[in-house]
Design a binder for these strands. Structure first.
Lengths: 366, 366
DNA sequence: AATTGGTTCTGAACCGTTACCGTCACCGCA
DNA sequence: TGCGGTGACGGTAACGGTTCAGAACCAATT
């Protein structure tokens, strides 16, 4: 005979007070303001609590009353595993977690169902503020976050009126990198980038798709490249840009292959992330192309493995970015006006970029 | 003149009801049970909400009444960065996050201040349950979690009466590995392990420290090795075990160095994690020792990089472990008795283990 | 005409706590 | 003896919702 298990409701502050013959206020004070009652009574309260199995004030009820949840919400891009496997995102997450930990705040990962456009989870999250990390510009979850009456910090996204922001200057950073390649003599380049929109497009990305990209970071980096090459008369529309939906070095390799197959005259591959660049390096190796003699390859982010293999890239301070987001959210600002933090990037010379071979060298070998 | 900023309190469900001239129940229903009121009225409610800037029912208040927080708490080992840089921990985290996402539950990282023994954060977390991942057996935070009247799942920790558990059979898995080395002929081995207790001890770990280790996983793995080598008459007390507090390949390298310096006759280094083993490989390379001809090196975990370099190791399904923990916590069990899930491990042959050179070979070369 | 059933909305209780202010006893001091 | 100050505790009203039993109304059935 199935018998429903009798779950004894845990004792409440009120029941404890009744048992002790004191007021609820006093019990509350025993936990929250020890100086407000005599040590003797406090001892009795806590001891009785132990005896009755009272686990202490209910966190949710407390939050309701004090108007503090003690946690910050984090909204990540649609696909969770995507973030967990991207070293840059992970660094940001670690930095944010550290900042929260330092402030004694929990970090609440908001569940975003990739299937349905279910914004409810954003409304259900009991948090004191939100950090939004690199979601598409038109993400309904972002809109939902902004509709909540709590402070918000956005990272790696375009500025939104009245919202704090942290990020780097993606455009300028990659323009610098492009200028180095231009100075080396590269004119015929190919570009590998991450996905530009929510829909999958594993292949060439025409200019209008680039310009309408939903992901701010990718859009800005491509824009920075276009600007740099425009200065030497390279028409951007003629530069092949290959997009990959999944972010992995395998995808970087396949994108590199697609580019090299489409134009054997390319002298450099510019990748908008290190992960992709590592794949491009692997593809070059597979083809027997020497880097940098036969092909220049560059990345972006400055992840550990890139540094290990000497990739020419741009380092961005991902850990600091996360910490800064946390500080921005948790610091007791006067909130007089939205603050914006732009962190510095650093060009890493590496060993995967060099002057292109001349035409003769290309045809007859060195 | 400093003037305190006037923060307009956001509209409440009650104020919205008053504005509309309906009851609070009706407004609540407009959000939670659309079938309970006429479409026309519902439309009016939502429209007025938009006009008044009402962000929808307050999540904390709702949680209080419904007794559901919509999130699970995760208690990680003391040092957050430690977890974020350990691929095994990261895999677990990803799996857990995926399980939560699938169930529409948030994942609340409990802030654990490494400095103070501040258990308050555990009590402050508004969650429906906890997952505790590989904390020291005597961690006060674990005790605090168990005192909360919510379901709990522990991972990679010894069984606790009445608490669900997920893990692998560390002892048996590493015993298998040890037996392979024994079969190859190894008798003189050194062991590199992660920290065994809260206090830092970068150096040799005597047997009693091993047996009293606070970290279940490390304790069990060492025990498994001892059991295996006992079968061939190798006295465990004579086996050098070097411990490192920080978990990094650099530490693995230095530990390997310490072992090789202390006994040049060692034919194999068994490491209790892949990260440490990768460091040991680096150290062997630095010394000009060929692996596996001159030295056998093994790891544990089966992280991606280990597989790339062909490390002989044991793979454990970390992602699955995280998912299983989530399922265990979120599945509507009858909770008739605590459940325990032990996942399978797999021996990876790799290319870093071989028979030791004979004495002659050692002295005169091959 | 009375009963039934369905839809739509309401009233009051409740979730478990903390904030705010008030009360009261006790003490030292003039 | 009266008085202000202080330490210890209590009462009441939020905090912002959800739940559940039922009221009011109307149409259809018996």
């Amino acid at each position: 005979m199935a018998r429903s298990i009798h779950v004894r409701r845990p004792a409440t502050l009120a029941s404890l007070a009744a048992e002790l013959g004191v007021s609820r206020t006093t019990v509350s004070n025993a936990y929250n303001r020890p100086d407000q009652l005599s040590p003797e009574l406090r001892r009795r309260v806590l001891e009785t609590a132990r005896r009755l199995g009272y686990p202490g004030p209910d966190p949710v009820a407390r939050s309701l009353r004090t108007r503090k949840a003690g946690a910050v919400g984090l909204l990540l891009t649609e696909n969770l595993s995507y973030a967990f496997r991207d070293p840059a995102a992970l660094g940001f997450l670690e930095g944010l977690a550290l900042a929260c930990e330092g402030a004694g705040q929990g970090l609440h990962l908001v569940p975003v169902n990739p299937e349905r456009e279910d914004v409810a989870a954003v409304h259900r999250a009991g948090v004191d503020g939100f950090v939004v990390y690199s979601v598409p510009d038109d993400d309904p979850h972002l809109a939902a976050v902004l509709s909540r009456p709590v402070p918000t910090v956005i990272a790696d996204q375009p500025h939104i009126e009245g919202v704090d922001r942290v990020g780097i200057d993606d455009g300028t950073a990659i323009t610098e990198l492009a200028k180095k390649l231009i100075a080396l003599g590269h004119r015929r380049i190919g570009v590998v980038c991450m996905r530009l929109a929510r829909d999958r497009n594993d292949g060439f990305a025409p200019v209008d798709r680039q310009q309408n990209a939903h992901f701010h970071v990718q859009r800005t980096r491509l824009g920075g490249l276009a600007a740099a090459f425009a200065t030497v008369g390279v028409e951007w529309a003629s530069v092949p840009v290959v997009e990959r939906f999944d972010h992995s070095s395998a995808m970087g390799a396949s994108a590199a292959a697609q580019l090299l197959d489409s134009d054997s005259q390319l002298t450099a591959l510019i990748c908008t992330s290190d992960i992709l660049a590592l794949g491009a390096l692997a593809e070059a190796r597979r083809r027997g192309l020497r880097v940098p003699q036969d092909l220049t390859v560059t990345g972006f982010d400055g992840i550990a493995e890139a540094e290990r293999v000497g990739l020419t890239t741009v380092r961005q301070p991902v850990l600091e970015k996360g910490k800064a987001a946390g500080r921005l959210l948790l610091s007791p600002s006067e909130r007089t006006r939205p603050r914006s933090i732009t962190l510095e990037t650093e060009f890493l010379t590496g060993t995967t970029a060099a002057a292109p071979r001349t035409a003769e060298e290309r045809w007859f070998g060195p």
